[in-house]
Design a protein around this nucleic acid. Sequence first.
DNA 1: CATGCTACTGTGGTCAGACCACAGGCACGC
DNA 2: GCGTGCCTGTGGTCTGACCACAGTAGCATG
Lengths: 245, 245
Amino acid sequence: MGAETSDAPRAWRIVLEHVETQLLEGALRPGDRLPGERALSAELGVGRSSVREALRVLEVLGLIRTSAGSGPTSGAIIIATPGGGMSALMRLQVAASGFPVADIVRTRLILESSVAGDLAEATAPAGAAPDLAPAELLLDAMDSPGLTPTEFLALDAAFHLALAEASGNQVITATMAGLRSGIEGYALEGVAAIADWHATSARLRGEHRGIVEAIQRADAATARTRTHDHISGYYAETFVDTPTA
Amino acid sequence: MGAETSDAPRAWRIVLEHVETQLLEGALRPGDRLPGERALSAELGVGRSSVREALRVLEVLGLIRTSAGSGPTSGAIIIATPGGGMSALMRLQVAASGFPVADIVRTRLILESSVAGDLAEATAPAGAAPDLAPAELLLDAMDSPGLTPTEFLALDAAFHLALAEASGNQVITATMAGLRSGIEGYALEGVAAIADWHATSARLRGEHRGIVEAIQRADAATARTRTHDHISGYYAETFVDTPTA
DNA sequence: CATGCTACTGTGGTCAGACCACAGGCACGC
DNA sequence: GCGTGCCTGTGGTCTGACCACAGTAGCATG
């Protein structure tokens, strides 16, 4: 059977909307399994290839996880891991010149400063402090001598992400993961532009400690400015044209 | 030919990475046409269905636009419209409970307050003011009596987006478009929870004017707090549990 | 009766081939 | 010179086939 004769929205979109509807109705929840591709195909009256195109989209967007074989863990399972989809989106948009790197950095500045400030404010009432342990573990790991710049940057990224996670805001966490992915390539290139990596990494480590310290001291204003300066300082060192806003 | 025997990453991913590489190398730029599906299939040694799965992903992510027929506008053309992909991602993640609505609202709060403040700061040096005309046109449109709540909310969303666009940050613009899409359904439901829509819409209109006024007065602090209060106030009215942070 | 192995079944992954609708370009006829 | 219709190439879709994989049920064996 060829293309639909009448109005016919694209077949794969039918599948996508069907899944979205099921999700909204609560008929499908994280952890549930989708019907098999062949079943979905028959149920919706579209070809299996169209079903697969829709599933591929859902997979890239971090909505489902697919695995072959049989048993309860096989098939397409609803998950909700926004980080992956966000990363793919940002990476490709940067590659396609849709997202200027400077805009990504500016957005990081806004988001991360805010996260640090909120974390500090949440620390105010003693006892209700957010959990910074994961972030501090990463700081310790970054102190280990002999790290290559690449390894260091990976830990650096993980540290910033750990702060976002500590804030408990999943949207911000996923967005930051995506932003970071989008400029990962540039960050690695930027290392080459740094004259004295040893000095720079030492400074970065110190700044990280300073941010955590300000948060734990419940000093929101300092946490914000230190975060801001930390990020803009790094990009000022690696890029010629860096946003200062 | 069936599934690959050896390690073989999934075929569609090969296509995706191929396009991404071409993009990064500059071999493919916005406006360019991708090779036809059949050509790509032959070139990369994968089936056409696999090529299509990859193209579908790129399409949903806002990287390409496809159209049938012949001529220079047919085929898959590189575009970079991040808004669409971001919207799809957010909408589906909310549907799948990956993104709590409260987190989206909190993120809006951060982003939009910051945008308003930056806009005000950019206004400081006379003459270099950002272009708020599109936003003001929307405000005028919102003054028209007889708007249904749905129409009003659409204009409201467009107004907030216009501010983001005025800031010139494409990442923030796209992200805000996505955030908005993610909670669109909730916003519409929320209207029902409002006792006096007439009074509420009048208040919203006034708050919008106030934000623009503060920006034009280059009063960043006021622009920030007014934006913050505007957003959190609206959600406080429509939701029971609204973030106040 | 307990245990280990094997064949089966259902799942996604992939490919090949076919047909359709659509839109531009070209050649022919007027 | 101009208009009309065919031709070709494009995405869009479907069908049918096969493969690799993993769990499971059933059989054979101790």
